[in-house]
Amino acid sequence: MKSKHIVPALLSIFLLVNHSFAQEAKMKSIFNGKNLKGWTVQPEDNIWWTVEDGKIAVENDPTKTGSILWTKKEYADFVFQMDFLMGTGTVDSGIFLRSEKDQIQIGISGSLQRDMTGSPYIPGKSYPVEAEGVADVLQLDDWNTMKVRLVDQTYTVWINGEEVMTYTSENMPEKGPIGLQLHPNNEMSITFKNIMVGKL
Protein backbone atom coordinates (compact mmCIF):
# COMPACT_ATOMS: atom_id res chain seq x y z
CA MET A 1 0.00 0.00 0.00
CA LYS A 2 2.80 2.40 0.87
CA SER A 3 4.43 2.08 -2.58
CA LYS A 4 1.25 3.42 -4.21
CA HIS A 5 1.74 6.69 -2.32
CA ILE A 6 5.52 6.93 -2.79
CA VAL A 7 5.45 7.04 -6.61
CA PRO A 8 2.99 9.97 -6.88
CA ALA A 9 4.91 11.82 -4.16
CA LEU A 10 8.22 11.41 -5.97
CA LEU A 11 6.60 12.47 -9.23
CA SER A 12 5.24 15.62 -7.59
CA ILE A 13 8.68 16.50 -6.21
CA PHE A 14 10.29 15.93 -9.61
CA LEU A 15 7.75 18.16 -11.37
CA LEU A 16 8.15 20.89 -8.76
CA VAL A 17 11.95 20.90 -9.01
CA ASN A 18 11.86 20.73 -12.80
CA HIS A 19 9.40 23.64 -12.95
CA SER A 20 11.58 25.80 -10.71
CA PHE A 21 14.59 25.25 -12.96
CA ALA A 22 12.55 25.96 -16.08
CA GLN A 23 11.23 29.27 -14.81
CA GLU A 24 12.80 32.32 -16.36
CA ALA A 25 13.62 35.32 -14.23
CA LYS A 26 11.06 38.11 -14.42
CA MET A 27 13.14 40.96 -15.80
CA LYS A 28 12.66 44.46 -14.41
CA SER A 29 14.25 47.70 -15.60
CA ILE A 30 16.68 49.23 -13.08
CA PHE A 31 17.36 52.37 -15.13
CA ASN A 32 14.54 54.88 -15.54
CA GLY A 33 16.06 56.47 -18.67
CA LYS A 34 15.99 59.97 -17.13
CA ASN A 35 18.59 60.09 -14.34
CA LEU A 36 20.76 57.93 -12.09
CA LYS A 37 18.11 57.36 -9.43
CA GLY A 38 18.75 53.95 -7.87
CA TRP A 39 22.46 54.12 -8.65
CA THR A 40 25.50 55.47 -6.84
CA VAL A 41 28.76 56.72 -8.36
CA GLN A 42 32.20 55.90 -6.98
CA PRO A 43 34.02 58.27 -6.45
CA GLU A 44 31.03 60.37 -5.34
CA ASP A 45 31.86 63.59 -7.23
CA ASN A 46 30.40 62.44 -10.57
CA ILE A 47 31.95 64.01 -13.66
CA TRP A 48 31.88 60.87 -15.82
CA TRP A 49 28.37 59.43 -16.05
CA THR A 50 25.60 61.23 -17.95
CA VAL A 51 22.04 60.34 -18.95
CA GLU A 52 20.49 61.40 -22.25
CA ASP A 53 17.78 59.99 -24.54
CA GLY A 54 17.24 56.91 -22.36
CA LYS A 55 20.92 55.95 -22.29
CA ILE A 56 23.79 56.10 -19.77
CA ALA A 57 27.05 57.36 -21.27
CA VAL A 58 30.45 57.44 -19.59
CA GLU A 59 33.77 58.94 -20.64
CA ASN A 60 37.14 59.46 -18.98
CA ASP A 61 38.00 62.94 -17.74
CA PRO A 62 41.40 64.55 -18.54
CA THR A 63 42.95 63.03 -15.40
CA LYS A 64 41.88 59.55 -16.61
CA THR A 65 40.32 58.77 -13.27
CA GLY A 66 38.33 55.55 -13.15
CA SER A 67 34.79 55.21 -11.82
CA ILE A 68 32.16 52.58 -11.02
CA LEU A 69 28.40 53.05 -11.27
CA TRP A 70 26.85 50.77 -8.64
CA THR A 71 23.26 49.74 -8.10
CA LYS A 72 22.03 50.85 -4.67
CA LYS A 73 20.23 47.53 -4.32
CA GLU A 74 22.07 44.31 -3.60
CA TYR A 75 21.32 41.03 -5.33
CA ALA A 76 21.86 37.36 -4.52
CA ASP A 77 21.13 35.12 -7.53
CA PHE A 78 20.06 37.08 -10.60
CA VAL A 79 19.97 37.56 -14.34
CA PHE A 80 21.39 40.88 -15.53
CA GLN A 81 20.94 42.14 -19.08
CA MET A 82 21.81 45.36 -20.87
CA ASP A 83 22.78 46.75 -24.27
CA PHE A 84 26.12 48.43 -24.79
CA LEU A 85 27.70 50.45 -27.58
CA MET A 86 31.47 50.87 -27.64
CA GLY A 87 32.50 54.47 -28.22
CA THR A 88 35.75 56.31 -28.79
CA GLY A 89 39.24 55.34 -27.71
CA THR A 90 40.34 51.97 -26.36
CA VAL A 91 37.23 50.66 -24.64
CA ASP A 92 38.03 48.87 -21.37
CA SER A 93 34.88 48.44 -19.30
CA GLY A 94 32.97 45.70 -17.57
CA ILE A 95 30.24 44.49 -15.23
CA PHE A 96 30.99 43.87 -11.55
CA LEU A 97 29.10 41.01 -9.90
CA ARG A 98 28.35 41.55 -6.17
CA SER A 99 31.78 43.15 -5.59
CA GLU A 100 34.92 44.38 -7.37
CA LYS A 101 36.36 40.87 -7.20
CA ASP A 102 34.38 39.40 -10.10
CA GLN A 103 34.09 41.34 -13.34
CA ILE A 104 32.85 40.47 -16.82
CA GLN A 105 35.11 42.25 -19.30
CA ILE A 106 33.83 44.52 -22.04
CA GLY A 107 36.46 45.61 -24.57
CA ILE A 108 40.23 45.53 -24.60
CA SER A 109 42.12 43.99 -21.69
CA GLY A 110 44.72 46.38 -20.33
CA SER A 111 46.97 43.46 -19.37
CA LEU A 112 46.55 41.23 -22.45
CA GLN A 113 46.11 44.09 -24.96
CA ARG A 114 43.33 42.31 -26.86
CA ASP A 115 39.55 42.12 -26.80
CA MET A 116 38.37 39.92 -23.92
CA THR A 117 34.67 40.81 -23.99
CA GLY A 118 32.60 38.23 -22.11
CA SER A 119 35.53 36.83 -20.12
CA PRO A 120 35.75 36.95 -16.31
CA TYR A 121 38.48 39.10 -14.78
CA ILE A 122 39.58 38.22 -11.24
CA PRO A 123 42.21 40.36 -9.44
CA GLY A 124 45.22 38.15 -8.82
CA LYS A 125 44.07 35.56 -11.37
CA SER A 126 43.71 37.77 -14.41
CA TYR A 127 41.43 35.91 -16.86
CA PRO A 128 40.99 32.35 -15.51
CA VAL A 129 38.98 31.33 -18.60
CA GLU A 130 38.34 33.00 -21.93
CA ALA A 131 34.96 33.49 -23.56
CA GLU A 132 34.58 31.50 -26.79
CA GLY A 133 33.21 32.57 -30.14
CA VAL A 134 33.00 36.26 -29.23
CA ALA A 135 34.59 37.46 -32.46
CA ASP A 136 31.73 35.86 -34.40
CA VAL A 137 28.93 37.64 -32.49
CA LEU A 138 30.36 40.91 -31.12
CA GLN A 139 29.52 44.05 -33.11
CA LEU A 140 32.23 46.67 -32.61
CA ASP A 141 30.30 49.48 -34.31
CA ASP A 142 26.75 48.67 -33.23
CA TRP A 143 24.70 47.84 -30.16
CA ASN A 144 25.31 44.51 -28.41
CA THR A 145 23.23 42.72 -25.78
CA MET A 146 25.00 41.05 -22.88
CA LYS A 147 23.22 38.77 -20.42
CA VAL A 148 24.77 37.39 -17.24
CA ARG A 149 23.16 34.69 -15.10
CA LEU A 150 24.65 34.31 -11.61
CA VAL A 151 23.62 31.41 -9.35
CA ASP A 152 25.59 30.78 -6.15
CA GLN A 153 29.16 31.29 -7.40
CA THR A 154 28.68 30.28 -11.04
CA TYR A 155 27.98 32.78 -13.77
CA THR A 156 27.18 32.32 -17.45
CA VAL A 157 27.46 35.01 -20.13
CA TRP A 158 25.58 35.44 -23.40
CA ILE A 159 26.43 38.00 -26.11
CA ASN A 160 23.72 38.74 -28.65
CA GLY A 161 21.96 35.52 -27.69
CA GLU A 162 25.01 33.25 -27.94
CA GLU A 163 26.44 31.61 -24.82
CA VAL A 164 30.15 32.39 -24.65
CA MET A 165 31.35 31.59 -21.13
CA THR A 166 30.59 29.83 -17.83
CA TYR A 167 32.81 30.17 -14.78
CA THR A 168 32.61 29.17 -11.13
CA SER A 169 34.34 31.70 -8.89
CA GLU A 170 35.68 31.33 -5.36
CA ASN A 171 34.76 33.22 -2.21
CA MET A 172 32.09 35.36 -3.87
CA PRO A 173 29.86 37.22 -1.43
CA GLU A 174 26.36 35.76 -1.25
CA LYS A 175 24.86 39.14 -2.04
CA GLY A 176 26.02 42.48 -3.42
CA PRO A 177 25.43 45.29 -5.92
CA ILE A 178 25.98 45.23 -9.67
CA GLY A 179 28.45 47.73 -11.13
CA LEU A 180 29.39 49.23 -14.50
CA GLN A 181 33.04 50.16 -14.92
CA LEU A 182 34.97 53.05 -16.38
CA HIS A 183 38.57 51.86 -16.34
CA PRO A 184 41.21 54.31 -15.03
CA ASN A 185 44.30 55.44 -16.94
CA ASN A 186 42.50 55.27 -20.25
CA GLU A 187 40.80 57.40 -22.89
CA MET A 188 37.48 55.86 -23.85
CA SER A 189 33.71 56.13 -23.91
CA ILE A 190 30.89 53.61 -23.81
CA THR A 191 27.08 53.82 -23.69
CA PHE A 192 24.52 51.56 -21.98
CA LYS A 193 20.74 51.17 -22.28
CA ASN A 194 17.89 48.72 -21.57
CA ILE A 195 19.42 47.76 -18.21
CA MET A 196 17.40 45.05 -16.49
CA VAL A 197 17.65 42.59 -13.61
CA GLY A 198 15.62 39.51 -12.77
CA LYS A 199 15.93 37.95 -9.32
CA LEU A 200 16.26 34.16 -9.16
Rank of each mutant, 00 (worst) to 15 (best):
S29W: 04
S29I: 04
I30E: 05
F31V: 03
N32Y: 04
L36P: 08
K37Q: 12
G38L: 10
V41Q: 07
Q42R: 09
D45W: 09
W48E: 07
T50R: 13
G54E: 09
K55L: 04
K55Y: 01
A57L: 12
V58C: 15
K64T: 14
S67G: 11
L69W: 03
K72N: 14
Y75I: 01
A76V: 01
F78I: 07
V79W: 06
F80S: 04
F80L: 11
Q81W: 06
F84T: 00
L85K: 15
M86V: 01
G87R: 00
G89K: 02
D92L: 00
D92K: 00
S93V: 03
F96R: 06
L97G: 01
R98C: 01
R98T: 01
K101F: 08
D102Y: 15
D102M: 14
I104V: 15
G107A: 02
G107N: 01
I108P: 00
S111T: 13
S111Y: 13
D115P: 01
S119I: 02
P120D: 11
Y121W: 13
V129T: 15
V129N: 07
E130A: 08
E130W: 01
A131Y: 02
A131N: 02
V134A: 01
V137A: 08
L138E: 03
Q139A: 13
Q139C: 06
Q139E: 13
D142V: 06
T145R: 15
T145Y: 04
V148R: 03
V148C: 06
L150N: 04
T154Y: 02
Y155W: 14
W158T: 08
N160F: 09
N160V: 10
V164S: 08
M165D: 14
Y167D: 12
T168P: 05
N171V: 09
N171F: 08
